[in-house]
């Protein structure tokens, strides 16, 4: 955030008492005049950010994803999306990454909620270089964006010179024997699964990193479908997330492929560490490895 503040003096920071959790304290310290902390009042935070947006600023409003997208849902929709303002809604604790905090702090519906808002671009990043490049693009992007991230936000998956562009999927692994389409934390697991499938069976499995969930990269989806075997994985409820969006594209484009949508299986469960939960719902590296192996019928 601090770097964005240096690059562009229209950047404003808006917090709701989670500056530490959201890791933006440096901006607040360096640019106190461009930083607002509205206290534990997410609705006010989002509306206030909209007010800044009306006056031509680019506010970045931070909270945990469930509070941002559900407590302040109507503010995101009516004050930000309806007015088509260049407000950046930054939600951490995506999916089950909040782990032992439990369901109150998980965000398993946010993609469905935010993608349903007209004008809203929805993003989830997987890699530090990707995150930096996409954050730079948020300075130029017209209209609102929702950016979700996990508690441990990113893992090194790409070479530093890889160019990531909002609206265009990145390819973390190439291959034509099958494809994973993922976003955020599941990209890392899909890469691990693909590498093991290559080592164990010589399979070349593509990993499509759909960091821009809306608008989805239709070409990348159609191309992935040509491998004949597509597995979607996202740290989100299976309803309304990346899987639903990709499935619509596949149907609309008349693609025929084996298809599996992996995510949270439409249920609330008790608190546990995130890796345990990812394993339980089958979208850690083991789960994705086994699902692709089964889909391809290799033993």
């Amino acid at each position: 955030m601090y770097d964005l503040g240096v690059k562009n003096d229209k950047v404003m920071l808006v917090n709701a008492d989670l500056m530490g959790t959201c890791r933006n304290r440096k901006f607040a310290e360096e640019f106190p005049e461009r930083s607002f902390n509205l206290g534990i009042a997410e609705q006010n935070m989002v509306s206030f950010a909209a007010g800044l947006g009306h006056e031509g600023f680019i506010p970045y409003a931070f909270s945990m994803a469930p509070f941002l997208t559900m407590r302040a849902c109507e503010q995101c929709r009516t004050d930000v999306a309806y007015a088509n303002l260049s407000v950046r809604l930054m939600g951490t604790y995506a999916g089950l990454s909040g782990g032992i905090s439990g369901a109150t702090h998980w965000s398993i519906e946010d993609v469905a909620i935010m993608a349903a808002m007209p004008n809203m671009t929805v993003v989830e990043v997987s890699d530090p270089t990707q995150a930096t490049q996409i954050m730079d693009q948020t300075l130029e992007h017209e209209g609102p964006m929702y950016i979700r991230s996990s508690v441990e936000p990113v893992f090194k998956l790409y070479a530093d010179d890889y160019k990531h562009t909002v609206g265009k999927a990145s390819i973390a692994r190439s291959g034509d024997d099958g494809a994973f389409i993922c976003s955020g934390i599941t990209v890392k697991y899909a890469v691990e699964a693909a590498d093991r499938l290559k080592a164990d069976f010589g399979l070349e499995i593509r990993v499509v990193d759909m960091h821009t969930i809306k608008p989805v990269d239709r070409e990348a989806v159609v191309s992935a479908a040509k491998t004949g075997s597509v597995i979607i994985a996202q740290d989100h409820n299976v309803y309304g997330g990346l899987g639903s969006i990709v499935a619509t594209v596949l149907a609309e484009e008349g693609c025929a492929a084996k298809f599996k949508n992996i995510g949270i299986d439409d249920k609330f469960v008790a608190m546990a560490h995130a890796p345990y939960l990812y394993n339980k719902f089958g979208y850690d590296a083991d789960g994705l490895y086994n699902s692709m192996k089964a889909m391809l019928g290799v033993k």
């Binding site: 404003m12 007010g51 800044l52 009306h54 109507e74 004050d79």
Partner: peptide
């Protein structure tokens, strides 16, 4: 600012007021 749903305009106005000062 488009409005209708209650309890929105006031906080948006606060953001605008803060923005004017910043400018």
């Amino acid at each position: 600012v488009s409005t209708g749903s209650l309890g929105h305009g006031f906080p948006v106005a606060c953001g605008m007021a803060a923005a004017l000062r910043q400018k």
